[in-house]
Simulated assay, not measured.
Amino acid sequence: MDPESIRTGQRVPHGGESDRDLLDFSANTNPRTPDGVGDAYAAALEASRRYPDDDYPDFRAAAAAFVGCDSERVIPTAGGLAAIRLAMEGVLEPGDEALVPYPSFGEYAREVRLQGATPRFVRYDELIDVGPTVLESCALAVVCTPNNPTGDAIDLDALAAFAARCADADTTLLVDEAFLGFTDRPSAATVDLEPVVVARSLTKLFGLPGLRAGFAVATGEQRDALATARRTWSLGTPAARVGAHCLRRDEFVRETRGRVARERERMRGALERRFDVYPSDAPYLLCDVGDRDVSTVIANARAAGVAIRDATTFRALDSHVRVAVKDRTANDRLLAALGVRDREDVGPETDP
């Protein structure tokens, strides 16, 4: 990282509610965890008396099977954000430019700036259409799929075509798939091109955000560089053991995807009675509250015991909130807090 940029840098806001008395819809994490997580964590505790195996063969094998790539291409990291930083540290130098989507995850621009580089903002739904003239002037391009906070995912064929243009321009493509596991869409890890680095997070899909487990996927010299730069013992033993356990819980993943899809559509139908709601492939919905005051909408929800995300902190959004998609009971509490109270109006019970 660039020392001067660190001194002048700032942190960015995130979801996540510290008040345990509030139902937290500001962070997009699964309210459920796979069976056996507690046992896997307990078994890892005694093993934590030794340093981890820095090769992480079991974790890498589970991660590779999950996204459909060879295990040699997997680089273990302490969460998806650690994978993003690792990729940017390996590519960006002071004075470089990086294509950054907006509105999207605020950490992209922050991490670019920490390297002494400059973010060049492009609308998230226009970024993969950028041509060679722009790409040739940028060392890095960032894509988020599904995009946070809008929720829409990118077709893999379109993403692969963009990756090929990045390869021609010698531009690294960083694909953040933090929420892709909530869908059945294939990972960009299957696009085996050297400029592509995929960042994955385990902790959202498996409901363990405090565990800090994730990984990057890369190929060729890009993979070698990331593997060399990766911090030694980049995953603690509990994170590696629990992460591998979760990645192999196929039935849990299928159940989660089905529940999220059903509840997301039910919630969208209800919320559209009050707000403009963006289509989404993700475990969250972005709502434009129109001429209502965002802070009042948030305060009223908190008074009803529910925390929602102030989405005006995302670039170019000024009348928006974001809400997570959880299970049926919790989602009904959210709808009530936002003024959608009649269960008959929001559809029949479908969540098993």
Rank of each mutant, 00 (worst) to 15 (best):
L140T: 12
H245C: 03
P283H: 13
V340E: 08
V297P: 01
R185G: 03
R274I: 11
M267Q: 15
D276Y: 06
R165C: 07
S48Y: 10
P348F: 04
R274P: 04
V191Y: 00
A282L: 13
L180P: 04
R32W: 10
E221V: 14
L193T: 01
P34R: 10
N30D: 11
P103S: 10
D168I: 11
I308H: 00
L180R: 14
E111L: 14
Y51W: 07
L114C: 04
P352S: 10
R20A: 15
L226N: 00
D318H: 15
N147E: 08
L114N: 06
A303P: 00
V323L: 02
G80N: 03
L135C: 12
G181I: 11
I298Q: 00
G9I: 04
N30K: 07
L205Q: 01
R259I: 08
A311G: 12
T329Y: 07
D345P: 04
G305F: 02
T172L: 13
T29P: 02
I75N: 02
I298R: 03
P119W: 05
D281G: 15
P348M: 05
T256H: 03
E4M: 05
D24P: 09
P13T: 07
L159P: 03
T150C: 05
D281N: 15
D288F: 08
G95E: 06
P101A: 05
T171N: 03
V37R: 06
F25K: 00
L335D: 08
N30W: 10
A270C: 08
G243S: 05
L99I: 14
R248F: 01
S104Y: 00
G15V: 03
F215E: 13
D168R: 12
L335V: 05
R200P: 00
V242A: 06
G207D: 02
A178K: 10
F121Y: 14
I75T: 15
R60V: 11
R241G: 08
V217S: 07
A189V: 02
G210A: 12
F215P: 11
I154V: 15
R120A: 11
R185I: 13
L127G: 06
D310T: 05
R113N: 11
R223V: 05
R241H: 06
L226C: 01
L208R: 00
V197S: 01
R7T: 01
F215A: 12
D192E: 15
G38L: 13
K204C: 12
G9T: 12
A62H: 04
I298P: 00
T118V: 14
S234G: 15
F215H: 12
P146R: 02
I75V: 15
D152A: 12
T183M: 09
C246S: 05
V196R: 04
R120Q: 09
S71A: 15
A227T: 13
M267N: 13
A98T: 02
G9S: 15
D70C: 03
L271S: 11
A62N: 08
G210W: 09
R223I: 11
R60Y: 07
Y51M: 08
A27H: 11
R7W: 04
D176L: 08
A109C: 07
G80I: 02
L286W: 01
P209H: 06
G16Q: 09
R322C: 11
R113L: 09
T203K: 00
P57K: 14
M88Q: 13
T133H: 09
E107S: 12
D276S: 13
G181Q: 12
